[in-house]
Design a protein around this nucleic acid. Structure first.
Lengths: 185, 185
DNA sequence: GTCTATACTCGGATAGAC
DNA sequence: GTCTATCCGAGTATAGAC
């Protein structure tokens, strides 16, 4: 790819991420994507074979991002403190980088149902949820470990937990509840 | 409505619920809906003004179902035991009736984004999540109360918590974790 | 290698006959 | 209450300009 002369492909991905998150995959027209990029509709077909291929490409990026976190977390020691550190890291990523990606995934989860990239993303999410589970633990503890990750994620969804807190306060509360869930009691 | 001679409208809703849940709203064509009902495509337009109206009608039914639960729960006394009873009831509904509705909502959550019925459904879900929250409690307790409801719901999603348990075992574990979350500790 | 012009197909929607 | 005919718009394919 070193010889490529334009960055159109990446710009398409960028615009698609925005539009698909805003209006949803199926309600977004390739006309709109092309217009925002100031190119013509068929020009998109030079870079991607189909509309679905654009979606797949965007979803792949999100998958990579999650796999990266999972890779890092798996390298951490299996102590209680490092499990808390993992939760903090997830919370941080949600606030700094993952918010738009997360929104995209939520809105388009129907559209990526039978995509290979969608399958891979789901696998990544499952891995992430399992990150804090101690292999030998009982079913209750296993469930709590997964729920802890979920709690942190849910803390970043505004409308579900509208308890009169702003963004970062809500994230802090979610993190605290999650931490409690993985501590022995 | 007493004088109506066929039940086509309800049959359309029924088939739409099935197909939209299986294949997603946008990937389902009205042709398929019509075929399964043994009528022609434009015939659907006698009963519903648009494809979206069919979706709205289905979503409305789900909203009613949730509102019904919320209404019942609000009539319960504010004791710890009755809050546990509410969790049990939700768990029961998920296993007996809500599974297909829940799947539908998950797959099509993008498609119902700007529908009035979708807005109402979201409001219902928020009400349901808030059901166990004690008004005067602090942010942590408020969050835990909502997470408890979420835990029960998540217990019914197979792939997220694949910890080698069958359906009803997983529901039982989720219910136990949820109950622990709303108990004082 | 990158894009435009043009044309084809199919699905959602409407008007009006029966 | 349902069907026939028809329109329109979006995704897609291809030829060819630069």
């Amino acid at each position: 790819m070193a010889g490529r002369r334009t960055d159109t492909r990446e710009r398409i991905e960028q615009v698609a991420l925005e539009l698909f998150a805003e209006r949803g995959y199926d309600k977004t027209t390739l006309q709109e994507v092309a217009e925002r990029l100031q190119i013509t509709r068929p020009a998109l077909y030079y870079h991607f074979r189909t509309k679905e291929a654009i979606l797949g490409s965007v979803v792949d990026r999100i998958g990579e991002s999650i796999d990266e976190l999972v890779g890092w977390a798996r390298g951490q020691p299996a102590t209680v403190e490092s499990r808390r550190e993992i939760l903090r890291r997830i919370s941080e990523l949600l606030e700094d980088q993952w918010r738009p990606l997360f929104r995209f995934a939520q809105v388009n989860q129907g559209a990526m149902r039978d995509l290979p990239a969608g399958e891979r993303l789901r696998a990544g999410v499952v891995s992430m949820l399992s990150l804090l589970a101690m292999p030998g633990a009982g079913a209750i503890k296993q469930f709590e470990a997964r729920l802890a990750v979920f709690a942190v994620v849910l803390g970043s969804v505004p409308f579900l937990f509208d308890i009169g807190l702003d963004e970062s306060e809500r994230a802090a509360v979610a993190l605290e509840v999650a931490t409690k869930l993985i501590s022995d009691d």
